[in-house]
């Protein structure tokens, strides 16, 4: 692990070495706004995730998550509103149904269960968003690169970033 504290005491990641690639699916009404709250509240968290906003967590079907893994994600976080808070009333219950299927398929495929997570994050829970991301990234660091990205033949070495991504990474 390459976590070091910078002058201000904020945890940063050493630029060299491996950083996990986390894909975060967030619903428009709660979790995405929660991430926004984390941002405007200047809460520091790990930057190694790509966020995909959907209107409702109920939209996140197994195909979305599987595609993320297929494209080399080391982990996938599905997030939505707490029960009872769903903008579409029952959308997050649908999300659970879909997530259960996804989890079974991911297990059958042989990926570690720790690479997939479902979390409810409200628009007010900026701190919680940051905490979930930090925890999950730590967990992925322990798991290492996805076996699927390691098995990628002819691609860049597992976990290594493309020059453009390297540049983005260097800026954070």
């Amino acid at each position: 692990m390459n976590l070091t504290k910078d002058k201000t005491g904020v945890m940063t990641t050493a630029r060299k070495g491996w950083n996990p690639r986390l894909v975060v699916f967030a619903c428009n009404w709660c979790s995405y706004a929660g991430a926004d709250t984390a941002g405007v509240s200047r809460i520091q968290h790990q930057p190694h995730f790509r966020m995909i906003r959907v209107m409702c967590s109920g939209r996140i079907q197994p195909g979305f998550v599987l595609r993320a893994f297929e494209k080399g994600a080391d982990g996938v976080l599905v997030s939505g509103c707490h029960f009872g808070d769903c903008h579409y009333v029952f959308g997050n219950e649908k999300a659970v149904e879909q997530f259960e299927k996804t989890k079974s398929v991911v297990k059958m495929l042989g990926l570690e269960e720790g690479r997939l997570r479902l979390e409810w994050i409200s628009a007010a829970e900026g701190a919680r968003f940051a905490q979930v991301i930090d925890e999950f990234i730590e967990q992925l660091r322990e798991l290492g690169p996805s076996p699927l990205s390691r098995a990628r033949s002819g691609d860049e070495a597992a976990g290594a970033l493309t020059p453009e991504a390297e540049e983005v990474e260097a800026r954070v």
Binding site: Q61, P62, G63, L66, E70, V105, L109
Partner: peptide, 12 residues
């Protein structure tokens, strides 16, 4: 099905 099956096959 959101391409779930195609993704599965490609991962396999």
């Amino acid at each position: 099905h959101g391409g779930a099956l195609q993704s599965l096959m490609r991962m396999m």
